[in-house]
Design a protein around this nucleic acid. Structure first.
Length: 134
DNA sequence: TTTCTAACA
DNA sequence: TGTTAGGA
């Protein structure tokens, strides 16, 4: 089983999440209501969070005290999710460097840029995202 | 005992 | 956001 799947496994109740994130249960539930996280429900209508959910909530926490509102956070998470989906369908890198076509080389470079963080939060925060600040 | 929803001195 | 009522 891939690590990606493990991180997506719905495992812990809200109590664990509040411990890990320092967020109140009220906040966690509120953020779910706003679509920032979507934990699975289980026996007795109880929320089950995955590692991914916890990671997202930690990012949400950071953005909150950075002064970003829910609309802005939603934008960031949207991008994050899109990037993650791209990583899931990432194609294997060609074995031999000599046989690497120019096309593959460009794919690699583009991927390096994306994963090095060039097109993530930093640039977002400085640019488009600025209008979501107070 | 823990978590859930809904609502507000 | 906190807190609480009333159930499951």
């Amino acid at each position: 089983m891939a690590n990606q799947d493990r991180k997506a496994l719905p495992l812990f109740p809200i109590s664990v999440v509040t411990d890990l994130t320092e967020l109140s249960a009220r906040q966690v539930r509120y953020y779910e209501d706003k679509g920032l996280v979507m934990p699975v429900r289980s026996k007795g209508n109880r929320r089950l969070f995955s590692f991914y959910d916890v990671d997202r909530l930690l990012e949400i926490k950071e953005l909150i005290d950075q002064g970003v509102n829910l609309a802005g956070i939603k934008q960031v998470l949207k991008v994050k999710t899109e990037q993650q989906e791209q990583n899931n369908q990432k194609e294997p890198v060609p074995e031999e460097t000599e046989k690497m076509s120019e096309k593959d080389l460009h794919k690699m470079l583009r991927r390096e840029l994306m994963e090095s963080g060039y097109m993530n939060q930093s640039s977002l925060v400085k640019g488009e995202l600025s209008r979501f600040y107070h």
